[in-house]
Design a protein around this nucleic acid. Structure first.
Lengths: 215, 215
DNA sequence: TACTTTGATTTATGTTACACTTTTCAAAAT
DNA sequence: ATTTTGAAAAGTGTAACATAAATCAAAGTA
């Protein structure tokens, strides 16, 4: 296999011990020293998923928003959150049966004023945002690049759309708990439902309460 | 030290291979098989803390909270673990192997204000919200009941998704300005594109910058 | 000269191995 | 009947090992 045939006088004339040779410290995927730990089996994938997230999160600051080096699945990734507090912006909300009439939206048409934070976030402490990769949930309007609003304080019930850590990867799917068992169901006919076996290692991170597509 | 002096005929007459001998499976502190994982140093204590928490929650809290076998840690880890989702009991989801409660990947950010307004609204004065009826734009994730964020200050260009008042009705469509004329194009194969004739009465109210679906 | 290839070196990573600890139970001792 | 004992079985933390990936200067090539 190896072409190194050090018979007597070798052709070794490259490489060698020298300053600066070899891989750089901190060049691994974690960017820091590691330690081995013993983890209970059922928690392995949750931790893997979490580490992946942490990883992509720190990459985000340097790179763009969505890391592309692991585009093989529909994993959501943590969205960077605006640090600063600003005054709540209340926007006019027009009735959804807006009749024609005057093109320019005047005060008359305003049905209510709405603060998006208030509208979308019920439990601020338990809510975080993720961005989506993949289109396995496209039929419910969750598209690649969307921002998901996830509430960890909502109980994952049958029919809810959840963020689940399965085999070390985060996915967004609809949770289905039937007599046939627990399933993670995509909303895209090109993807099959996933049966959550007894032996499966699954952790639900939260319930998706909204998705935001930006154009 | 050992008093076992197996010289010739030993006094071995206790113990021995037999059914039921030895420690029981699942009698460890995790109650299940484990696996070794490599963990980045900075995450070790967080994971330990979480594992301890999980442990003391699922098992009896007869023991103490803080394990003493790792009290040598030099990092002043604060055990201020969030009260979190630990609402008055009632999550017997363990039966389904569905467990909530991994520390949020965005925990550090939750403290910060999730300002969706800032994220979604560029020009507050010119922005309004509109809710959607119909599914003519479902392929871009605009579904019935969604809330649209509309910016009147953005110039309606070819390819933009716009709110148009056409012959007295408000619609959301993609604006297409080709040599064949100006079109309002649905994003749903069941709907035909609409040609905007010279005689048409059309007014563009604004450009859609985002859509929000709530579940 | 400028670019590409090569290969030893160094760090990273996942897994196995191993030393030691803990738990368990029945025979032996009391 | 109760306690002691000790091998067996399982658990736990860490070292060790085998690849894998990254790095860079020498050597090769155009």
């Amino acid at each position: 296999m190896t072409k190194k045939q050090n018979n007597g006088i070798s052709d070794v004339s490259r490489g060698g011990v020298r300053q600066g040779a070899g891989r750089k410290k901190g060049s691994g995927k974690f960017g820091e020293p590691t330690k081995v730990m013993r983890i209970p089996q059922s928690k392995v994938s949750a931790i893997q998923a979490w580490l992946n997230l942490q990883n992509s999160q720190s990459l985000q600051s340097a790179q763009d928003i969505i890391p592309s080096n692991q585009a093989q699945s529909d994993s959501p990734f943590v969205w960077h959150l605006p640090p600063e507090e600003t005054e709540p912006a209340e926007l006019p909300l027009y009735a959804h049966k807006v009749v024609a009439g005057f093109p320019s939206p005047a005060e008359d048409y305003i049905e209510a004023r709405l603060d998006l934070n208030e509208k979308l976030i019920r439990n601020k402490e338990a809510t975080f945002l993720l961005s989506v990769q993949g289109d396995s949930m496209k039929d419910v309007g969750i598209l690649d690049g969307d921002i998901l609003v996830v509430d960890r304080s909502i109980e994952p019930q049958d029919g809810k759309i959840v963020i689940a850590a399965l085999d070390g990867e985060l996915t967004v799917k609809r949770l289905s708990m039937k007599s046939t068992g627990t399933w993670l169901v995509p909303e895209n006919e090109n993807y099959p439902p996933i049966l959550v076996r007894e032996s499966s290692d699954i952790v639900i991170w939260g319930v998706v309460t909204a998705t935001i597509s930006q154009f």
